[in-house]
C-alpha cells in the first residue's frame, strides 16, 4: 500500500477525527521507524503541527506533550528537576542525538514498545497518559490494554514529588536496546521499581517494592527476579535476564535507599 496523502492536523481532536473510522490512516509521531513500518496505510497523519510539543508543570505534575522529543528530555531543565534526572538519563544513550531529536514521548508510549527505556522509567514514576478520546488513565493500565481503541495520545503526566531516582540498564553496545532495564524511584516516600526489556513491556515489580519499603535492596532484587516473567530473544536468554535482574534491581535500590 503506498502512502497517498500526508496530513498535518492542527490539533489532537483534528487528528482524532482523521484516524477515527479510517483503518488506512496512521499517526506519525517522531517518524523514526517510518521505513521499518510495513507501510500498511494510505494516509499519514503527522502530529508535528498539533501543538503537542509543550513541557509544563501544572498542579504538581509534569505534563509532557506527546511530541516532546527525547533530546528535550535530556536538555530541558524543568524535566530534569522534576524527575530527578531520570527521564533524561534513561534516553541519553539511545542511538544518537539525531534520532533523539525526532523520537517522541508519545510515539514511544503509544507504541507500547517492549524495549523502550522511557516506558520503564515512566512506569516507575507512576505516570498517567492522556488520550484525546479515552481521557486520562494510569500508564500501567494503558500498557495492559489488550485491544486499544484508535486514539491520539495527547500527553503524559508525571508526578513531580520525586525524591530520588536510579536508572540501570544493560546493553551490548551502548546505543543498543537494553537487554534489561530497571528504574527505581522514591516518589513522595513510596519506592517504586519497574523492569522492562525482559524482553516484554515494562512491569512494576511489586514484590521488590515491598522489600524496598522495608529497606531491603538485596531482598528486592531477589523478589523482582522471582516475580517477573523473562524471555529469550536475540540479545539474551530468559535465564540470563533473570540472573542479572536481581543485581540491577538491588543496585538501583541501593542508590535510591541510600
Amino acid at each position: 500500500m503506498a502512502v497517498k496523502a500526508y496530513l498535518r492536523p492542527k490539533s489532537p481532536s483534528e487528528a482524532l477525527a482523521l484516524i477515527e473510522g479510517d483503518e488506512r490512516a496512521a499517526l506519525i509521531g517522531g517518524g523514526a521507524y517510518l521505513r521499518l513500518a510495513s507501510r500498511g496505510y494510505e494516509t499519514a497523519v503527522d502530529l508535528c503541527d498539533a501543538g503537542l510539543d509543550r513541557v509544563r508543570v501544572e498542579d504538581g505534575a509534569l505534563r509532557l506533550g506527546a511530541m516532546v522529543t527525547y533530546r528535550r528530555l535530556e536538555t530541558d531543565l524543568v524535566v530534569r528537576d522534576c524527575s530527578g534526572g531520570l527521564l533524561g538519563r534513561c534516553v541519553e544513550n539511545i542511538v544518537g542525538v539525531q534520532v533523539r531529536n525526532i523520537v517522541t514521548v508519545g510515539g514511544t508510549v503509544a507504541g507500547r514498545y517492549a524495549f523502550a527505556n522511557l516506558t520503564t522509567a515512566l512506569l516507575a514514576l507512576g505516570a498517567d497518559v492522556v488520550l484525546a478520546r479515552g481521557g486520562r488513565k494510569p500508564l500501567e493500565q494503558f500498557l495492559a490494554d489488550k485491544a486499544p481503541a484508535r486514539d491520539v495520545l495527547v500527553e503524559v503526566v508525571v508526578p513531580t514529588a520525586v525524591r530520588r531516582s536510579a536508572w540501570r540498564d544493560l546493553t551490548r553496545v551502548r546505543s543498543d536496546f537494553a537487554v534489561l532495564n530497571v528504574a527505581a524511584v522514591d516518589v513522595g516516600g513510596e519506592v517504586r521499581v519497574a523492569v522492562g526489556a525482559r524482553p516484554g513491556v515494562a512491569r512494576l515489580a511489586r514484590g521488590a517494592m515491598q522489600a524496598a519499603a522495608a529497606g531491603d535492596a538485596r531482598g528486592a532484587g531477589e523478589a523482582a527476579a522471582a516475580e517477573l516473567d523473562f524471555g529469550d530473544d536475540l540479545r539474551a536468554s530468559a535465564d540470563y535476564r533473570r540472573r542479572v535482574c536481581g543485581a540491577l534491581v538491588t543496585r538501583a535500590l541501593e542508590e535510591v535507599l541510600a
Binding site: 521499518l36 551490548r172 553496545v173 551502548r174 546505543s175 543498543d176 536496546f177 536475540l234
Partner: peptide, 28 residues
C-alpha cells in the same frame, strides 16, 4: 565482544539491520 550473525530456527536471519546487528560506536 558484540558482532554476531544470528539465524532463527528456519534459517531466517535475525540480525538484518543495524539495530539488531551492532557494530562498535565511538563510546564503545
Amino acid at each position: 565482544l558484540w558482532e554476531e550473525v544470528v539465524y532463527g530456527p528456519q534459517g531466517h536471519l535475525r540480525t538484518r539491520d543495524l539495530m539488531s546487528y551492532k557494530i562498535p560506536g565511538r563510546e564503545d
